[in-house]
């Protein structure tokens, strides 16, 4: 019986589903809500401070706020805290822009031992690269459609 046949696989899959420990869905959702909400709350605080200090409109304060939040995400990754936050926060830690920072900083740190060029720099985008690539590709498609076809 080297490789399972389709029918064997199906029967075994049913057995797996039956004995698979369930993810604690309700608990996960609550933690994702709390952690994600809390990060956005901090973001709002940062935004308000920037607006007040620099006298900027909410739109103008957007990019610097994102910059500060990315730095904070990077810092807490560096301190070794962010991966622990994500263990229970789940997507609540991954989805905010701080999670994007974590996705860039984590491989950068991981591969420091392979050197600054071939390690840190080359590997920096192993996780976050696909995010940037897809954001650019989809945005160009959407932008093209909405400004030429849409008009």
């Amino acid at each position: 019986m080297p490789k399972a046949t389709g029918r064997e696989t199906a029967a075994y899959q049913r057995m797996i589903v039956a004995s698979k420990p369930k993810r604690p869905l309700a608990e996960n959702l609550v933690w994702a809500f709390v952690v994600g909400g809390a990060i956005c709350l901090v973001g709002q605080g940062v935004k308000n401070i920037i607006m007040k200090a620099e006298g900027l409109t909410p739109t103008e304060a957007g990019p610097p706020t994102v910059g500060v939040m990315i730095f904070l995400g990077a810092l807490f990754t560096g301190l070794g805290v962010y991966d622990r936050l994500a263990r229970f926060g789940g997507m609540g830690a991954n989805l905010p822009i701080t999670g994007f920072a974590n996705a860039i900083v984590a491989p950068a740190m991981e591969y420091q031992r392979e050197g600054l060029v071939l390690g840190v720099s080359a590997r920096m985008f192993t996780v976050a690269g696909p995010v940037i690539v897809h954001a650019v590709v989809v945005a160009v498609i959407v932008g093209t459609l909405s400004h030429f076809v849409g008009k």
């Binding site: 263990r87 974590n102 900083v105 984590a106 491989p107 591969y111």
Partner: peptide, 17 residues
């Protein structure tokens, strides 16, 4: 972890299995 999965500092929730 770094060979098979993610960089060690990347935050992610581990599935129950």
């Amino acid at each position: 972890e770094r060979q098979y999965r993610y960089p060690t500092e990347f935050g992610h929730q581990r599935p129950t299995t």
